[in-house]
């Protein structure tokens, strides 16, 4: 699954991205001079422990938090200052907690139609039905409210909503960490299928090296707002990480029972 769509054109280019919170002496850099680029069609992972700034990078790309960068380009367009309405047709995000990410008082159908209404998509209803099919949800669910759905179903709705605008890039913010283990695998496989079908590029944040091994082509390791190293996943899985922090991270996840060695069998099916 990995090498088919990989191209050499960078679709997201980030150079020296800085996000700081607070002002004056209290200012703290959550993301401190991060540079990397994501190639079209690949899955790029961002790993690191909690608070290392990985989710903040996604929020900075989408403009949810203010940031400064020498370069911040998405599909060749400079988006470091302003993002037009068009930007959101290209880039969509899937959030960590699917219950939080859905409007609590809107039906599934309304959640799906909202992006189409905002962007004035002409064939909205057809698209919404297709989106539900794409994420494997029965059409009968469309008049339900989020609280009537299971966690996995909610995340599928969130993914379906992200697909409504037919984006090129999906930003995935720990899309499975709020779900149970069996459901995690379903959602990850769904994401892989969608990527193949729609030629999506994924930028995925996770703290789970197992997920990285399963999904990603390349990954960047982060520690307290800085990028420690960027390496292909094959190298990571085969113990080729050079930085001590990366090795520590792998060791920690092995101790937790997610040995990359056993994962390497799981990865490349």
């Amino acid at each position: 699954m990995v090498d088919i769509m990989k191209s050499q054109t960078p679709i997201i280019e980030i150079d020296n991205l800085i996000v700081s919170f607070g002002e004056g002496d209290d200012a703290r850099r959550a993301v401190d001079g991060v540079s990397f680029s994501v190639l079209a069609g690949e899955t790029f992972g961002l790993v690191g422990e909690s608070g290392s700034g990985k989710s903040t990078i996604l929020r900075a790309i989408t403009g949810l938090v203010p940031s400064t960068a020498t370069t911040l380009r998405v599909m060749g367009e400079d988006v470091s200052r302003e993002r037009g309405k068009d930007f959101y047709r290209k880039v969509q995000m899937v959030f960590q907690d699917p219950y939080e990410a859905l409007h609590p008082r809107h039906t599934v159908w309304r959640q799906l139609m909202e992006p189409a209404r905002i962007q004035k998509v002409p064939d909205a209803e057809t698209r919404a039905k297709a989106s539900l099919d794409a994420v494997g949800l029965p059409q009968a669910l469309r008049w339900r409210y989020p609280h009537q759905l299971s966690g996995g179903q909610r995340q599928r709705v969130a993914i379906a909503r992200a697909l409504m605008l037919k984006p090129e890039i999906l930003l995935l913010d720990e899309p499975t960490s709020a779900l149970d283990v069996s459901v995690q695998a379903e959602i990850l496989n769904l994401l892989c299928d969608l990527q193949e079908e729609h030629g999506l590029t994924f930028l995925m944040v996770t703290h789970d090296l197992g997920v990285v091994a399963h999904m990603c082509n390349r990954t960047a390791v982060m520690q307290s707002g800085k990028l420690v190293e960027t390496l292909p996943v094959d190298v990571l899985v085969n113990g080729g990480a050079t930085e001590p922090y990366t090795r520590k991270l792998i060791a920690a996840s092995e101790a937790y029972g997610e040995a990359p060695a056993s994962l390497s069998q799981l990865t490349k099916v």
Binding site: T62, D97, A101, L102, P104, I118
Partner: peptide
């Protein structure tokens, strides 16, 4: 909240977010 962020990521204007997402809640 994430569901308001999600609406912002659909390219909605602030006016729309307030009137059709915040006010009803």
């Amino acid at each position: 909240r994430d569901h308001i962020s999600a609406v912002r990521l659909m390219g909605a204007s602030n006016l729309r977010i307030v009137l059709s997402h915040i006010v009803p809640l």
